[in-house]
């Protein structure tokens, strides 16, 4: 169970997010730009949370997770390119596509562990990045505009800023709840158990490989959904989202929020994107400063924002 403090922070944050469009467009503030900004933050929150699901709970240090973000945008973009704009169909393709690719890549990479796993997930994700660049039909490395956003209901037009925003917020809430349920289910116990000691899990009778593979696929699909939203929000398809740099950023978000805390990465994504924005405003060479900051964070603030709050939630329940 979450501590009272964490639960209040979480509910409070969601309430703020829910109220944000009204506030941002009110006459007093009048900064509709914030709606778009927070929509992006929430999308990366979903992606980072899905990474934490395998990284923090399953000890699978996937260094290619942004791949699924990119695949999601390609699913929307490619179908829109061929004028298949039915949102449900796009969603189906997005989910089955990311699940299939995560399954194949998991099958290859989960045979290994440690440094090998990191390098292989890294290289395989990069392979898709290069594939995206070589696909001239979809704009190569320039990318491709997505002309039409997904169409779900006639009364729910995603071209309306608010509809887009609340779709993203809704997905975030649902994804967080579902992943939280999974982590505490029997399945989640197996994934978490193999985190601390895989040989032990096998000795008590769990064929852990298939459970780890399933977790890998779940994380890929959730991240793919984030990509689906990202493609719709930015109305642009580009291999850049699959680049390893993005995967590294997702890992930073997880760490800044707190590894193995599920909700921490929501705040990690917020903190990282704000920090990037702040530094980029302040200097052209923001990475020059951010690099050393990152090293210091790793060395001295590893528990992350969520981890700094009192009360542990991932153990001893009831």
């Amino acid at each position: 169970m979450l501590s009272k403090l964490k639960l209040s922070i979480l509910i409070g944050s969601f309430l703020i997010l829910a109220a944000l469009p009204m506030v941002a467009e009110s006459e007093m503030i009048d900064e509709p730009f914030y709606i778009d900004l927070m929509a992006r933050v929430m999308i990366f929150s979903i992606a980072a949370m899905s990474l934490d699901f395998i990284l923090g709970y399953g000890a699978m240090i996937s260094f290619g997770h942004a791949l699924y973000l990119g695949l999601g945008t390609y699913a929307v973009g490619i179908m829109a390119h061929y004028e298949l704009t039915n949102g449900w169909m796009q969603l189906l393709v997005c989910i089955s596509g990311t699940a299939f690719i995560a399954f194949i890549l998991g099958l290859i990479s989960l045979r290994t562990s440690g440094i090998y796993f990191i390098m292989i997930t890294f290289a395989l994700a990069q392979m898709f990045y290069f594939l995206g660049i070589s696909l001239e039909a979809f704009g190569g490395d320039d990318g491709l505009p997505i002309d039409t956003r997904s169409e779900f209901f006639s009364f729910f037009d995603l071209n309306e800023t608010w509809n887009m925003y609340y779709l993203i917020l809704g997905t975030l809430v649902v994804a967080a709840l579902v992943l939280w349920k999974i982590i505490n289910s029997r399945f989640g116990m197996v994934v978490r158990g193999s985190h601390s000691n895989d040989a032990r899990m096998q000795a008590i009778g769990f064929p852990t490989f298939k459970y780890r593979l399933a977790a890998f696929v779940i994380a890929g699909v959730v991240c793919g959904l984030a990509g689906f939203l990202l493609g719709n929000l930015t109305e642009f398809l580009t291999p850049e989202y699959m680049h390893w740099f993005r995967s590294g950023e997702l890992m930073i978000m997880v760490m800044v929020g707190g590894m193995g805390t599920l909700f921490g990465p929501l705040f990690g994504a917020f903190a990282y994107l704000m920090m990037e924005d702040f530094l980029a405003n302040f200097t052209e060479y923001w990475q020059f400063y951010f690099g050393p900051i990152l090293i210091l964070l790793v060395l001295f603030a590893k528990q992350g924002l969520w981890g700094m709050l009192p009360g542990k939630e991932d153990i001893s329940d009831e």
Binding site: K181, F187, M189, V190, G193, N197, G205, Y211, I315
Partner: peptide
């Protein structure tokens, strides 16, 4: 499993022998 309670450790063993664990919803503890 050091991050689990003693009870959860043993429950995990029992779970391993209580059918498959592709059960995603119900709270294990």
């Amino acid at each position: 499993f050091k991050n689990f309670t003693a009870l959860e450790n043993v429950a995990l063993s029992i779970q391993a022998h209580a059918g498959h664990s592709f059960k995603f919803w119900k709270r294990a503890s």
